[in-house]
Computed example of a mutant assay.
Amino acid sequence: MKIKDKAANYKPAEDREKDLKLAIHRLQKGRAHTKEIKVSIAAVAREAGVSTALIHNHYPTVAEAIREIQGRSSRAMRDVKHQDLIAERQKSAGYRQEIEELRAKLASIASINEVLLEENRVLKAKLKDRSVVELVSSQPRR
């Protein structure tokens, strides 16, 4: 007998979708039976007497319509993320170019540094080759 009772709760998909759309409409007009104020998937589910999972899993168009009402459309969010991705890729390309320029400058500076180090070694070697003469003071020591 319980199986028959459960079967009585099942509605055709078209009827359930109609119930969900009516629930959305009631929420938008402020006439919800559940006294909900905001339109959300949870509020629509409570108003229609179903679970949120049912809306997510079996009525994605209804879920998308609710998100659009909330201003959180997955398409809009995807488009925003896509634009953000394009902007980040452009920044990344600029950074890669800057890195290449800095590497070239670093190589040039390293080359100049090696030349200066070699010149320094040569000059130090020349200083060692000269004989150093120590000057003696003419004043007597105390």
Rank of each mutant, 00 (worst) to 15 (best):
K4T: 14
K4I: 15
K6H: 13
A7K: 14
A7V: 12
A8W: 03
N9M: 11
P12T: 08
E14Q: 03
R16E: 08
K18N: 06
K18D: 03
D19S: 09
D19H: 00
D19L: 00
L20S: 02
K21V: 00
A23G: 02
I24Q: 01
L27C: 07
Q28V: 01
Q28F: 08
K29S: 11
A32K: 01
H33A: 15
H33L: 15
T34E: 12
K35L: 09
E36D: 15
E36W: 07
K38L: 12
K38H: 13
K38R: 13
S40I: 13
I41P: 07
A42Q: 12
A42M: 09
V44I: 06
G49D: 04
G49T: 09
V50K: 03
S51T: 15
S51H: 08
S51W: 05
S51E: 02
S51R: 03
T52I: 05
I55C: 07
N57G: 07
H58E: 07
H58S: 08
H58N: 10
P60N: 04
T61W: 01
T61V: 08
A63W: 04
A65D: 01
I66T: 06
R67A: 02
E68N: 07
G71I: 03
G71A: 02
R72Y: 06
S73L: 02
S73C: 02
A76T: 14
A76H: 11
M77L: 13
M77H: 09
R78N: 12
K81P: 00
H82S: 13
H82C: 09
D84T: 15
D84E: 14
I86F: 00
E88A: 15
E88P: 02
Q90V: 07
Q90M: 07
S92I: 03
G94F: 02
E98I: 13
I99W: 01
L102D: 07
R103K: 09
R103H: 04
R103I: 00
R103N: 09
L106P: 01
L106Q: 12
S108G: 04
I109H: 08
I109S: 09
I109V: 11
S111P: 05
I112Y: 06
V115F: 01
V115M: 02
L116F: 08
L117G: 10
L117P: 01
N120T: 06
N120L: 11
N120A: 14
V122T: 12
V122M: 03
L123I: 15
K124C: 14
K126F: 06
L127Q: 10
K128V: 12
K128S: 08
K128Q: 11
R130P: 00
S131G: 09
V132G: 11
E134M: 11
L135G: 06
L135V: 15
L135S: 05
L135Y: 12
L135R: 11
S137K: 05
S138Q: 12
S138G: 14
S138P: 15
Q139W: 07
Q139S: 07
P140V: 12
R142E: 13
